[in-house]
Write a protein that binds this DNA or RNA. Structure first.
Lengths: 352, 352
DNA sequence: CTGAAAGCGCTAACAT
DNA sequence: ATGTTAGCGCTTTCAG
């Protein structure tokens, strides 16, 4: 691979018989350089195929102009919309973005953090992996004054700036809705209760039950990972319950879709026999049948808000130290998978 | 933002009263440095919180150790699996990855290419956007001997190294399968025929028709983008056909799922009235009802193969100039959305 | 085994 | 409006 020699500002300067300082200034569009020289420089630079050496520039400037983001998975609808939101803001603000993902592994998350730290990102955005035990790997960032913003799966100890939704309320709303549809035995399928998001949704679930005079039954709580096989297992577990449940609130749309499929395969009618509410509002919701009721969790807003706050902090416009928790709007979307009472009404009408 | 002073090899050297050269060598684990000094250096480096300055290193070494990838969209199942495959290989080989996406826009793809070129990626992996008109923006890479590998949506003019599947064959198989199921009026819903993948699948479709004595009817060809609204429109277009079609081969699973939903909403029975075959084998296939027959297009393999070839080329192990076209295995997966004949058989049995 | 020194390409303070 | 020059932190020859 014969590496072509790169054109530098020295080449341009000597070709034009001017100093490198002038070339450097012209290339930065410094108004102090005369229009004529500027034009000459720009033309020659284009002709010679000059490109900025970012390493030299960054070395000199002691800045990387890069923001890192650590996510737990790339293959989720929610995460890709967060990324889209982050990317929009960072690109506009002229930052590069390095994406790292932990595959839900604590050790990989640590490795990612170390890597991004060594790459000297100017700021970091992160969501915790499934089995992250502590936040020690983010300490080096704090020590070097590199701002970190967490989103979605976070540690809400008041020490970190976090962008979240009101998971408590969402869990409450989802469950309350099921109760209003006449459900009495409501299963909750969720993931590790060590993660704030799942713990809070579970709390909301329990609160809604209690406020509606339904005793919490721990046998109706199913905790699993978010894989397809786990979802099938959860559904089978529901089917073995006696008496059968009549509603289920599931913490993830994909899992909800798989559960629904499995239940239907076992001759359960949705929503008549069991009403279902998922979480996230993925595209999948309106493609399954019946369409899935869910909590709308706008990833793009989460990404934009997290990135905007980080960028503003970096530019000195704001300061994330002053903001501990940013709550993004979310809401219940009611579709056919949970409209039990209506369907039953319709059924009655047909009978008439 | 008070920037902490960074620790450099100078700090380590002077603290230990040795030369920076020795520190540099030790940090690279050069065997020429004595174990004792090495240990001292490593320990102090860790204690002082030293981190390599990649800019200084890359500036000195004239290498970026970075591979760029341009994709048309992040929010597609196929693309995220390609990314996963690429990431696996590049990470193992010690390369950084910069992901850029064009949002299906030609001008953004050009901007991305320019950006990655200016960042001096060591190699590039790319899939063309929806409306990319030419490959001029990749010329600078060739001129500087920066290897480029295209995948999926490519220009097969023999001038580029491409990683693809046999789209022709896939289109043929999908259509042939529908014919075997007894379909006579088979619609093909696809996207811009300027893109190789869609053109080739369309070719396969026509070949299968012709070889089975079914004349090609241009009224049965629907060309749209891959959005939900376009999918709904396509389905409505099908419903207006007279006589109605009895099968449809759709170039994308998401579109296929939306079309299926729309058809069902209009009282079309799948597969009895219309059999459906999609493309890609996204997770969605087994969540819709009936499960979607499709062409399995393993993105992870595509990504791994593309990245492996690029990395080998960069390391001098292989040379992509010698390899023009790499074809990844793909295959038809038959599910219920297309099993028309069987269902009709069953129906007959039930009548007996 | 270790050290001295040059230089990668760029920016910015200072000088003209 | 332009030029001179000193580094940014690292690697690597060459010389001990």
């Amino acid at each position: 691979m014969p590496k072509e020699k790169e054109v530098t500002i020295y080449d341009i300067a000597s070709a034009l018989n001017i100093s490198i300082a002038t070339v450097s200034r012209a290339l930065k569009n410094d108004p102090v350089v005369s229009k004529r020289t500027k034009k000459k420089i720009f033309d020659l630079a284009a002709k010679m195929g000059y490109r900025t050496n970012h390493f030299a520039r960054n070395l000199r400037n002691q800045t990387t102009n890069t923001i890192g983001i650590i996510v737990h998975e790339l293959s989720s609808n929610f995460i890709t919309s967060v990324l889209a939101g982050v990317e929009k803001v960072t690109t506009e603000a002229g930052y590069d973005l390095i994406i790292a993902h932990s595959s839900e592994s604590f050790s990989k998350e640590i490795a990612n953090a170390k890597n991004l730290f060594d790459k000297r990102v100017d700021g970091l955005i992160a969501s915790l992996s499934f089995d992250t035990k502590n936040l020690d790997h983010y300490k080096p960032f704090k020590e070097k004054n590199v701002p970190v913003i967490f989103f979605d799966r976070v540690e809400q100890d008041g020490k970190n700036t976090v962008v979240v939704i009101d998971n408590d309320k969402c869990g409450y709303q989802a469950t309350e809705h099921l109760i209003q549809q006449g459900c009495k035995r409501i299963v909750h399928i969720t993931s590790s209760l060590k993660r704030n998001v799942y713990a809070q949704r579970f709390n909301g679930y329990k609160e809604a039950l209690s406020e509606n005079g339904i005793p919490y039954d721990e046998n109706l709580l199913i905790v699993h990972d978010l894989s397809e096989s786990a979802a099938i297992e959860s559904a089978m577990q529901m089917l073995k319950m006696n008496p059968l449940p009549d509603g289920v609130f599931i913490t993830n749309d994909f899992v909800a879709a798989v559960v629904m499929r499995t239940l239907k395969e076992n001759n359960i009618k949705i929503p008549e026999d069991m009403a279902i509410v998922g979480f996230n509002n993925d595209a999948i919701c309106t493609l399954v049948e019946p369409a899935l009721s869910t909590i709308n969790y706008p990833g793009i807003d989460v990404g934009e808000v997290a990135a905007r706050n980080l960028v503003n902090h970096l530019k000195g416009i704001g300061n994330i130290q002053n903001t501990n928790t940013i709550i993004i709007r979310s809401n219940l979307i009611i579709r056919n998978s949970s409209l039990k009472s209506e369907i039953i009404e319709k059924g009655k009408k047909k009978l008439n």
